[in-house]
């Protein structure tokens, strides 16, 4: 089975600056593999090991996504090789554009059975790219995937949905977007990082890929952070811990929380 993991080289949320207004500034954050994507690496590796397949990393974006650091960061997490499309034209590309470039790269890689991705990126967090990619490829696309195993001629996929979980049989090729807690991804060790430097990296030229010209572009009109929940901001007198605990329990009962 040939598995492609589509991942994003994105700002590391550990470096995020949260302003007093509650706005999050990622402009000074150092880049890393987007927070939820290592889950996809891990699912892909386990599936490939179980079926004797290959795992190909794939990332697209501006020129800064292709550095020795970024290559090692991805290749040390269980990939066999890496394919990169880094072009200034993709610097601030929207999700639709990214998905069409990913689709062209998946076709260029060829004979791909499965594309795995994290549910959403850490910075844009719209969760749109994997399913748009499926649409552009004309493949089956499923989000909220919490487990995947190989079965005769296809995959058995568990999905974690608001109403509960479902287990479905999925024919390949397909695109699956994994939930952030589907598996615990491995932490790269020294040997993994040393090994990463020896793995092949293929750089695809955007101009040489068969990507349709971008359609309509998005204009953001307004942004606002989500409304916070109503808080009562009650402070209990803590001089007697037992008394404070009793008051807290009483208040929680009254609010119907207990």
């Amino acid at each position: 089975m040939k598995i492609v993991v589509a991942y994003k080289w994105a700002p590391n949320p550990q470096d995020a600056v949260v302003a007093t207004t509650g706005e999050v500034d990622l402009s000074r954050a150092k880049p890393a593999v987007s927070e939820y994507d290592p889950v996809a690496f891990e699912l892909a590796r386990r599936l490939a090991d179980a079926t004797g397949g290959e795992v190909v990393g794939l990332t697209v974006g501006g020129p800064s996504i292709d550095t020795p650091l970024s290559r090692k960061a991805a290749l040390s997490r269980g990939l066999d090789r890496l394919v990169v499309v880094a072009d200034a034209e993709l610097e601030d590309a929207d999700g639709t554009r990214i998905a069409t470039v990913l689709a062209a790269a998946v076709r260029a890689i060829g004979d791909v059975d499965l594309v795995l991705a994290g549910d959403s990126s850490i910075d844009v967090a719209q969760g749109q790219v994997p399913l748009t990619l499926a649409g552009v490829l004309g493949w089956l696309g499923l989000a909220a995937v919490s487990a995947v195993t190989a079965a005769d001629g296809g995959l058995v996929v568990e999905r974690s949905l608001p109403g509960g979980t479902t287990v479905v049989a999925v024919p390949t090729p397909a695109v699956l977007a994994a939930t952030a807690d589907a598996v615990v991804p491995r932490v790269a060790g020294m040997k993994d990082i040393l090994g990463a430097a020896k793995k092949p990296v293929e750089v695809l030229d955007l101009a040489a890929l068969d990507v349709p010209a971008p359609g309509a572009t998005l204009a953001t009109l307004a942004t606002a952070k989500p409304a916070g929940g109503e808080r009562t901001a009650t402070i209990f007198d803590g001089s007697s811990p037992a008394g404070a605990a009793a008051q807290l329990v009483g208040a929680l009962r009254q609010a119907g929380a207990l």
Binding site: L69, A73, V187, M190, I193, L194, A197
Partner: peptide
Amino acid sequence: DAWLAERAEEAGVFLMPGV
């Protein structure tokens, strides 16, 4: 520090972060 480490990497040092 990132700039200094990049110079080292350019000179052939194998940089191993996150360890």
